[in-house]
Design a protein around this nucleic acid. Structure first.
Lengths: 278, 278
DNA sequence: TCGAATTTGTGCGTATGTATC
DNA sequence: GGATACATACGCACAAATTCG
C-alpha cells in the first residue's frame, strides 16, 4: 500500500530532555562510566544493538556509533556474531630503558633486551633480517654520513622481539657501514658479541652515552598487526641513539640509531637517573 | 505519487571490484596517502561529502565515516559549515627529562622546568595550589607512609605549567609532610629555594636518584581541556619519583612523587644516559 | 544586513553479508 | 539450520555553522 510509505518520518523529539550534548555521546558516557566504575567488569557483555535501541529509545545507527566509539577508545571489543564485551586491560610490563640501571655489570650478559626479559622471568626471543643499504635522508642526517652517494653506507637490521612467544617490540637499527666493515661484528647478530655496547667495545669503540626520544602516537595498521594489538592502538615510538668514540683518533660520532615501536597499553617505560653520591 | 516510493532500492553491486577491504577503508587510505605524501598540504581542503560521493560513487554515510576517521586519526580537522581540512601538525618540542643532562651545574638556577624553557627560548610560567592532606592509598604506598591515620601526612601541590602563555604541562606533586614540616621549604613554592633538588638540599636531604615511569594513553576530558588540545588526544602520563637520603641517619626514602601529564602531540621526551668516561 | 547555498553534525530507517552460538 | 549479533552499505532529513553575493 502506498500509505505504508513514510515520506516524512516524524523524528522523535528529544529536545525537551536535551542537555546540549548529542544523544550518542550521552550514551557513550553512560556506558563508559559503567565500565570505568567496574559496574561492567572486564569480559562483561555490553548491550547489543537492539538492546541499546530499546533501552535508550534510539535508532540502529546511533547504537552502532556508540559501540564504534567504545571500541576505538579501547574500552570494548566487538566479536562479530557474538557480542560486544568490556575489554580486559592487559597487565602492563615495565621495560627498563636506562643502561645505568640496566647494566649492573658493564658489557653484561647479552643485549639489553635479553637482560630485561630475564629480570622479569620472561622468555625473550627475537628474529631479525640484516641488509646493507644506502641510507635514507633522515638516517643520513642523524648518523652524519655526509653527502649521498651511490654506495651502500649503512647496515640496516629489522627486529621483531618476542616475550614468551608474543610479539612485543619492533625495532629498526641503523649502523654506519664504515664503522664495522671488515670486522667480526659487521653483522649485528652474527658473532660472539651481542648488543651494541658489547659489539662496539670489541672493536675498540667506546660508548660514551645514549639518548632516547620518546613519542606516542596511533599505531599504523601494519605496526598494530605485527604487535598483535587492535588497529588504532597507541604505541610508543622511541628513537635511540648511541654515541661513541671511534679509534684511532677517538673522534666522537653516532655509532647506532634505532627506531623502536612498542604497545603503550602493554608497556610502561622506566627511566632511571641515578646521581652518584660522590 | 506512490510510485516514487522506493521500497527496495537496488544496492550498488561492488563485489566485482572488491579487493577484500571495505569501501570506507579504501577511501580513507587513498586520502591518508595524499596527506602523508604532501599532495594535500596542511590547510588544504578535503573533498566535501557530496564530492566524495561523486568521486568514489559512494553514499553519504560512507563519506561521513571517512571524514570521521581522518579526524579521529588527527590527520584532518572539520569545520562545520566550512569544510574539512588537512591538519597542520604542531611543531613538537623537546622536553629534557634527565637531570644529568638537565643540570649542568648541580642545584642550578631554578627548577628543571624553568631551565628547560630557557634552553628553548620559551617563557615558562606556572601557577599552583598547595594543600596539606591525608594521602590517598596509592600515594601512601609509593611514599611508604605506613598505616593510614586521621592525621594529614602529605603536601600536595597541583601545577599548571605554561610555555609562552599556553598551558603545556599538568603536574600533581606529593611530598611527605614529615620531611619538610617546620622547615623554611615546607611550602614548595614559598621561599628562596625552587625545585625539589634545591629545596631538599637546603634542609640537608641529599637526592640520590630519580625514576620516571612513562605511560601513554588517551587524555581524560578535563586533561585535554586544561592542555587546550582536542578531547581524546594522546597524552604522556609520567610518574616521577625522587629518592634521597634523609638526615640524621641518612635513611633512604622517597622524598617526592609527581604525576605529570603532557600532550604527546606537542612534546617529545628526551632521555639522556651519559656514561662516564672514567 | 540579509538571504541563499554549501558543509558539517546528528539522527532516522533499511538492507545484506557473515560470524557465532 | 535457525536465531542472534556485528560490519558494511544505501538513502534521507534537518539543524547549525559558515560563506558569499
Amino acid at each position: 500500500m502506498a500509505s505504508a510509505c513514510k515520506l516524512r518520518p516524524q523524528p522523535v523529539k528529544l529536545s525537551l530532555v536535551t542537555e546540549d550534548r548529542p544523544l550518542y555521546l550521552r550514551i557513550v558516557e553512560a556506558l563508559r562510566q559503567k565500565i570505568l566504575s567496574g559496574e561492567l567488569a572486564p569480559g562483561a557483555r555490553l548491550p547489543s544493538r537492539p538492546e541499546l535501541m530499546r533501552e535508550y529509545g534510539v535508532s540502529d545507527s546511533v547504537a552502532v556509533r556508540v559501540a564504534q566509539i567504545l571500541v576505538s577508545e579501547g574500552l570494548a571489543e566487538a566479536r562479530s556474531g557474538s557480542g560486544t564485551y568490556v575489554r580486559a586491560k592487559p597487565k602492563q610490563r615495565l621495560t627498563t630503558r636506562s643502561f645505568t640501571l640496566r647494566l649492573t655489570v658493564p658489557f653484561g650478559t647479552g643485549s639489553p633486551y635479553r637482560q630485561d626479559m630475564e629480570r622479569q622471568d620472561m622468555r625473550g626471543t627475537w628474529s631479525y633480517r640484516t641488509v646493507t643499504a644506502v641510507a635514507p635522508p633522515e638516517v643520513r642526517e642523524r648518523l652524519r654520513l655526509g653527502e649521498e652517494g651511490d654506495a651502500e653506507d649503512v647496515v640496516r637490521t629489522d627486529y621483531v622481539f618476542e616475550a614468551n612467544g608474543e610479539p612485543s617490540e619492533l625495532s629498526t637499527s641503523w649502523e654506519p657501514l664504515a664503522l664495522t666493515e671488515g670486522t667480526p661484528v659487521a653483522l649485528p647478530e652474527d658473532g660472539p658479541h651481542v648488543g651494541v655496547m658489547d659489539r662496539m667495545h670489541s672493536i675498540g669503540v667506546r660508548i660514551i652515552g645514549s639518548t632516547e626520544e620518546v613519542r606516542a602516537r596511533l599505531g599504523a595498521a601494519e605496526e598494530c598487526a605485527a604487535l598483535r594489538v587492535p588497529p588504532g592502538s597507541i604505541v610508543f615510538a622511541i628513537r635511540r641513539m648511541y654515541y661513541g668514540r671511534v679509534p684511532p683518533e677517538g673522534r666522537e660520532r653516532v655509532v647506532e640509531m634505532a627506531d623502536i615501536v612498542l604497545s603503550a597499553e602493554r608497556y610502561v617505560l622506566l627511566y632511571g637517573m641515578p646521581r652518584d653520591e660522590a
